[in-house]
């Protein structure tokens, strides 16, 4: 059941921020609504007390993907469908484009926004692992301040971020990556569409003289939130880029995730599958490069 709330749709950012800065009103930002509306429906504690929904879709400029010299900006209202159709994204951030294609269904992708995906910060948010390996930053604005923060630092714990009550995430800023970084995204769900991720992985790798020169690894759904696995990246750096190493990395990944999550009801399925699929992903990136 959806409880009562007020709704506003300001046509400029300042006005939206004004509504947000009213400390007495329990307000929430509405973009695609694909988390909030079902959240209302299941009476999620995160949304049940909402008194005011501030729809930001009418604010000009927020629904644009902009290419700059060294980076690309994705506005707060850019939908997953826009991502999948954007040549800029496909060219510089193919993992993000691939992840976007796996989100929900066509109808959901037409509404859901990338920014909303990580502001909600569900463990299974499909856009998070790719954004993390691309070193995405985000820009946050309040009435009085504008700040930038690394996405990894913004994500705190499941369904919790560093966003303050009076702030809006206005855009994502992703630096164009080193063209020698090759990678892939992997998602496992219970079916091929409208599936919640059980495992998601994003990897970017650069080889030099058959050695792993640089590797960036991020996981979703198997860790409490989408996370860069820096320990694993350090472990990999400088090793031979071959099957032996990939298996070692996969085993190491299994240990790491077990350490982070402890044993859960799902571990006996997920952990071995995580190792196997991570190994597959590394082999695939390796063979794509050759």
């Amino acid at each position: 059941m959806i409880s009562k709330f007020n709704y506003v749709a300001p046509n400029n950012l300042r006005s939206a921020l004004k509504f947000l800065s009213d400390k007495k009103t329990n307000s929430k930002i509405l973009a695609g609504g694909t988390d909030i509306i079902p959240g209302f429906h299941i009476e999620s504690k995160r949304f049940i007390d909402t008194e005011l929904l501030i729809d930001i879709k009418k604010i000009p400029g927020l629904n644009e993907i902009k290419e700059k010299k060294d980076y690309v900006e994705i506005g707060a209202c850019v939908t997953f469908s826009q991502i999948t159709e954007s040549d800029i994204i496909k060219q510089y951030f193919p993992l993000l484009a691939k992840a976007a294609e796996t989100v929900g269904s066509v109808q959901i992708r037409n509404r859901a926004t990338v920014v909303g995906n990580f502001v909600n910060n569900a463990p299974c948010a499909d856009s998070v692992p790719p954004l993390l390996v691309y070193n995405a930053k985000i820009e946050i604005q309040s009435l009085t301040k504008k700040r930038q923060i690394d996405l990894q630092k913004f994500l705190i714990k499941p369904y919790t971020t560093a966003l303050k009550k009076n702030e809006i995430v206005t855009k994502i800023i992703i630096p164009k990556p080193d063209p020698d970084l090759k990678g892939d995204f992997y998602k496992l769900g219970r079916r091929r569409a409208v599936a919640i991720s059980r495992i998601s992985l994003a990897v970017l790798m650069k080889k030099k003289n058959d050695l792993i020169d640089e590797i960036r690894i991020a996981s979703g759904a198997v860790t409490p939130i989408g996370t860069r696995l820096y320990d694993l990246e350090r472990f990999a750096k400088g090793k031979q880029a071959n099957s032996e190493t990939y298996k070692e990395l996969a085993i190491q990944m299994g240990r790491l995730v077990l350490e982070i999550t402890g044993l859960r009801w799902s571990s006996e399925y997920k952990l071995p599958v995580l190792q196997q699929t991570f190994y597959q992903l590394l082999e695939r990136i390796n063979s794509d490069e050759n």
Partner: peptide
Amino acid sequence: FDEKIRNRKLILSKEEFVEP
């Protein structure tokens, strides 16, 4: 999945990986 040695069993050995 053996209750007594459960943690260990969940981490694969290299021989258990399936080739692409």
